[in-house]
Design a binder for these strands. Structure first.
Lengths: 246, 246
DNA sequence: CGTTAACTTGATAGCATTCAACTAGCGTGG
DNA sequence: CCACGCTAGTTGAATGCTATCAAGTTAACG
């Protein structure tokens, strides 16, 4: 039986790779974790820093972001329970972006040293983590497409589709309703838009009877319609698409 | 002495990780490679396909791209000699984007099976490749920032800065002049703009005496000025930033 | 020398930003 | 208990960046 914090990671890995062998699971469960509570808005990892451990999200939501020259912010990714937002710091020593908490969250810190030992002694686990980092990259590419080539309403719809599917994959949603901690300011920074315009785009989604979004709760009224409008194709999420090694 | 095709990969890996140990280098050099010529515009890997080998660019330029619902295209990344544009297919079996050639190019196909054996028998090489895929992800994130939060002229300047620095890192440029095979159509798809607007943005870069761009050749007149205008900070390229394992 | 792709230019249209003001909810403190 | 301040959300008007449309030029090539 996995200890509670690590079970989030296992569940999340399994959502992408199918069942994990017992020995691999045991090796992952043996990882040391230092739990920490962070408050809403807290800056957890700073650009330019050189972390010696990686973060596992246990509860809440973390975002990665960068600031450009004139002060504007771009959110690069959002992370829910089971995600490891800075797994990359294991091999790229200097952080190239910030990480902060959207809401009060619980995180686990896993020392790089322990991860290196795991990868060395359990190649299977290494492949799972590598695959995970590749999925992370796939999301960044789709976000690039979203921001580069879709209009505002579609971008918003696409983001909502992705979020619901990811939440469902780790058991945080039934596919219709889930928590939505992001403010419209967050959404605008994630989608490369102004807050005012996000506001109007969400109103259009409401007017079309696609969603209900209030009091930090998102309800999808018409997932097919939202997919259609957001030009959403889930292939890039690679759910159940990481091959299990023979 | 490395055989020629693989030496591109070695040089490229070293540009990010410093010198590689002899045994690791030998293991990488032992990789089987099937060379292939592709013509300009050729579609090399198709979205939805499940490749059984990964590509190493030997000469020329490859791009990765996606098409959205209304037919617009977003270029996700550009790849020069030494790059492995679909290393990810080793662990994510279904392609989530297309790969094609910008100009007549020479590529090497490395069977996944051989890469798996390499990673198993030479963990050091595995780390180098993993690190490489993380740098790839870092570029995608910076592109997202570029498209999401910078105006057209800055986007263009940023792209040029990145390209020159990457070219120089693998010996394809002296940092001032290099080949530029991308058309303005390509640039607009890479930067989330229209071709007309890219044209005007390039004219502004010329008028400011920052670049000369003609006949497939790019010359940087004022790199500092271009960096400034493009809000370019090379940290995200992680050149020489992948730690060599103790 | 005709054809095509790439590039250029001008005019118009449209999506998104900015500015400004206003509402609602919530916690704090006098 | 209510004033106050703060954050998040909403709305309208004006501006502006970028797209689209259309036409023309240039360069490369068989």
């Amino acid at each position: 039986m996995a200890k509670e914090p690590i079970s989030r990671l296992i569940r999340s890995l399994e959502s992408k790779s199918g069942e994990i062998s017992t020995s691999t699971r045991d090796a992952i469960c043996a990882l040391p974790i230092h739990e920490r509570e962070v408050q809403a808005g807290a800056l957890i990892v700073r650009i330019g820093s050189k972390p010696s451990s990686s973060i596992l999200v246990l509860d809440g939501m973390l975002i990665r972001h960068k600031i450009v020259g004139d002060g504007k912010r771009q959110i690069i990714s959002i992370h829910i329970a089971g995600d490891m937002p800075d797994l990359q710091s294991l091999f790229l020593k200097t952080m190239d972006h910030d990480i902060s908490a959207v809401q009060p969250s619980r995180i686990g810190l896993i020392p790089h040293e322990a991860l290196r030992v795991l990868i060395r002694d359990c190649p299977e686990a290494g492949k799972l983590l590598w695959g995970r980092s590749l999925v992370d990259a796939s999301l960044a590419r789709e976000w690039l497409v979203n921001v580069g080539r879709r209009r505002a309403v579609s971008r918003a719809a696409h983001l909502l589709c992705e979020y619901v599917m990811r939440s469902r994959a780790v058991g945080l949603s039934d596919g219709r309703t889930c928590e939505w901690p992001l403010t419209q300011g967050h959404m605008s920074d994630a989608l490369g838009l102004s807050a005012v315009h996000i506001n109007r785009s969400l109103q259009e989604l409401r007017k079309r009877n696609l969603i209900v979004l209030e009091k930090n709760t998102l309800e999808i009224l018409d997932f097919e319609g939202l997919k259609e409008l957001g030009d959403f194709d889930e292939t890039y999420l690679h759910l159940q698409d990481v091959p299990v090694e023979p």
